[in-house]
């Protein structure tokens, strides 16, 4: 395994973990109504989306045409 593969595997596992915990956090926030809670909902959601992007990157779906130096 070269370095890039290890990075991708670690990123993939990490992304799954972070995604799960982001969703758990989001669930805890969901019923709250304050301005800070609403902003947090949006931001946690986007962070979860970021984890999806990482998963896509670790499988090489994105960028199209393959990445890496």
């Amino acid at each position: 395994m070269d370095l890039a593969t290890i990075e991708k595997v670690v990123a993939f596992i990490g992304a799954l973990v972070v995604f799960t915990f982001a969703l758990i956090g989001l669930k805890g926030e969901w019923h709250k109504k304050g301005l800070d809670d609403n902003v947090t909902k949006v931001l946690l959601g986007l962070m979860a989306f970021g984890c999806v992007l990482v998963v896509l990157a670790s499988f090489g779906v994105l960028p199209r045409g393959g990445g890496g130096a």
Binding site: A4, E7, V17, F21, A22, G25, M47, L53, V54, A57
Partner: peptide
């Protein structure tokens, strides 16, 4: 010019997103 290194950036991104989640908790 070459593209940037996606694999490492993906790893580094997880580090940052993870810190966001830990801050939330």
């Amino acid at each position: 010019l070459p593209r940037l290194d996606t694999a490492f950036a993906a790893f580094n991104s997880v580090v940052l997103f993870g810190s966001g989640v830990t801050m939330h908790f």
